[in-house]
């Protein structure tokens, strides 16, 4: 974690303290927490939902949950950013699945593509290096592993749906997912 903290100066270092203040209903701390994390949350949610309107709504839900549940954050269970991104991913996946259940997703999302607005310069310099590293690490996975991550993490499928989709057995899919994550973790130096 120390290594990660060193690589994410503006993010990991302060989030702990901000979350503690948010738990005390400090609106300024909440705004700062939002500003420090919004691009990651909105980006992930958008990647999963592929619809700008739904992504905004879900992002808002995520931060309302932060506002209300900041006190539940347990530093022993992981970093603040992992807590937040887990929450964001859970919300996005829930939304995808409820839309799928209503069988609206295909028609409403269709081939909708989200054009990411130009990255803000301020964060770009730090992030660029990180993004490059992440991209490289994703690139170091096998195609089959990457496909698994895409379907499970970004498309919101369960591992058994992934196995149906790829006509591979469950054990194969589970081990592909595990190997993909281990590969990424090692490559990114997450301890």
């Amino acid at each position: 974690m120390l290594e990660m903290a060193a690589r994410l100066p503006g993010v990991t270092a302060d989030l702990d303290a901000l979350l503690r203040r948010v738990a005390q209903r400090d609106a300024d701390a909440f705004a700062a927490f939002y500003d420090n994390t919004r691009a990651r949350v909105f980006g992930l949610v958008t990647r999963v939902l592929r619809d700008p309107g739904y992504s905004e709504e879900t992002t808002q839900d995520v931060y309302l949950q932060v506002w209300h549940n900041a006190g539940n954050y347990d530093p022993a269970a992981g970093s603040p950013i992992a807590w937040l991104m887990t929450l964001a991913h859970r919300r996005a996946v829930d939304r995808v699945r409820s839309e799928q259940a209503a069988s609206q997703r295909e028609s409403r999302y269709g081939a909708a593509n989200v054009d990411p607005p130009a990255d803000r310069v301020a964060e770009a310099v730090i992030q660029l290096d990180e993004q490059r590293q992440v991209t490289e690490c994703l690139g170091s996975l096998t195609d089959a592993q990457r496909e698994c991550i895409q379907l499970a993490y970004y498309d919101g499928l369960t591992y058994s749906q992934v196995s149906d989709r790829l006509s591979a057995n469950l054990a194969t899919i589970k081990s592909r997912m595990r190997d993909a994550l281990r590969g990424l973790r090692k490559c990114l130096g997450v301890s």
Binding site: M1, M4, A27, F30, A31, Y34, D35, R38, A39, R40, V41, F42, G43, L44, T46, R47, E56, T59, Q60, Y63, L64, A77, G78, S79, I81, A82, L84, M85, T86, H89, V114, P116, P117, D119, R120, E123, Q127, E130, Q131, V134, T135, C137, L138, Y153, L181, L184, R185, L188, V190
Partner: peptide
């Protein structure tokens, strides 16, 4: 579980996209 989530938190830098400003106003 923790290791996977820390890893995906780092991976989230790759998909970062700035939200529109009005989202911030609405949230606040």
């Amino acid at each position: 579980v923790r290791a996977v989530r820390e890893t995906m938190a780092v991976v989230s830098t790759a998909t970062a996209v700035e939200p529109p400003d009005h989202l911030r106003d609405r949230l606040l």
